[in-house]
């Protein structure tokens, strides 16, 4: 397991009570927004996305994950990272003769970057894009919108087709964010169960709630493990498949964990005031983007099959049970 606790602590301290533009400026001046996962290492990128994600209750527009994913797009296109501007990323984009459209991640960004099949890597100035919010309650406030822009208003940075790396880079960052908010919600729930009393004892003393919290924690351990594994695998050339596995687990089980966090908090968990709902929307974002669980699972299964490099004779299928 990769230990990034010192970086996490440094970033958490940096953000502290700063909010909004002040928080963003502090991140920029400390170099966190110059990171490109490909050049700076995936561990640091994960830390930045994760800590910013966990701050999402207070920082709905602190879209570090989207910014870093966009940085990766620009790097892969050989273009300079615009670290002095808020960047967002365009996912699942497609084009016809007149427009480019896709899912914009990182609303509030000044610039969007993304790869578009048949066109290449492109850059869009948000002021020229017709950005509309996706009318899905599930993702309300989760930094997602539908981007529609005239093809005349995009800068094609590099012609060509997107490599499979592009989506898997985004999968990794989404997984990092979600693993962090899931773990934060589990810890918040643990503390709450110890404070709140009912029927003459704390909620933490109720076995059924203890078991639920155990399962939330185990999911968190597996999510963070897959994330560490993916960060390591990017160095070995197997980053994409490991990132899809991390996204699949973090999104799928993260949604479950955040649902439990709301449930275990009772009525207060259902309020916007507590903020777990904001985290749930981030987990849903991870689960739904890039083709949802179906796409992620298909990527994982295909990679699993391809990785079967050694297939010994399977004797057990040759014997009759009698």
């Amino acid at each position: 397991m990769i230990d990034t606790s010192s970086e996490e602590a440094a970033l958490a301290e940096l953000l502290g009570r700063r909010i909004g533009a002040e928080a963003w400026d502090a991140l920029a001046s400390d170099g966190w927004l110059d990171l490109s996962p490909d050049s700076a290492g995936w561990e640091l990128a994960a830390v930045a996305a994760a800590v910013a994600g966990a701050c999402a209750v207070a920082q709905p527009r602190l879209e570090v994950g989207a910014h870093l994913t966009a940085a990766g797009v620009l790097s892969s296109a050989g273009a300079a990272v615009e670290s002095n501007r808020r960047m967002g990323v365009l996912l699942g984009a497609r084009t016809d003769e007149k427009t480019v459209r896709g899912v914009a991640w990182g609303t509030g960004a000044e610039v969007f970057a993304g790869w578009v099949p048949g066109l290449g890597a492109l850059r869009v100035d948000a002021r020229s894009a017709a950005l509309t919010a996706t009318p899905l309650l599930l993702l309300r406030g989760a930094g997602i919108g539908e981007l529609v822009v005239s093809i005349d208003d995009v800068d094609v940075l590099a012609p060509g087709e997107p490599s499979p790396l592009e989506d898997s880079r985004a999968a990794f960052i989404l997984a990092a964010e979600t693993a962090a908010v899931s773990a934060a919600a589990t810890e918040k729930t643990r503390i709450y169960l110890g404070q709140r009393a009912a029927f003459g004892r704390t909620l933490a003393g109720q076995q059924v709630l203890q078991h639920r919290l155990v399962d939330m924690s185990l999911n968190d351990v597996l999510s963070s493990t897959l994330l560490s594994k993916a960060a390591e695998e990017w160095k070995n050339g197997n980053g994409p498949s490991a990132s899809w596995a991390a996204k699949l687990h973090a999104g799928d089980r993260g949604v479950w964990t955040l649902e439990q966090a709301i449930q275990l908090h009772g009525g207060i968990g259902f309020t916007e005031e507590l903020g777990i709902g904001a985290w749930l929307r981030l987990a849903q974002r991870c689960r739904l983007l890039l083709g949802g669980n179906g796409r992620a699972a298909a990527e994982v299964v295909a990679a699993t099959h391809a990785a079967t490099a050694y297939s010994p004779r399977d004797w057990s299928l040759e014997f009759d049970p009698q």
């Binding site: 687990h249 799928d252 699972a297 699993t304």
Partner: peptide, 29 residues
Amino acid sequence: VLSGIDRPGQDFVVRLGRLVAAIDALVVV
């Protein structure tokens, strides 16, 4: 087996993908 089937059921693929991810993590820990 699933990779040898033309258009395997989505449910099977998702279930297997989930299990692969969780088991891979468990192998590490």
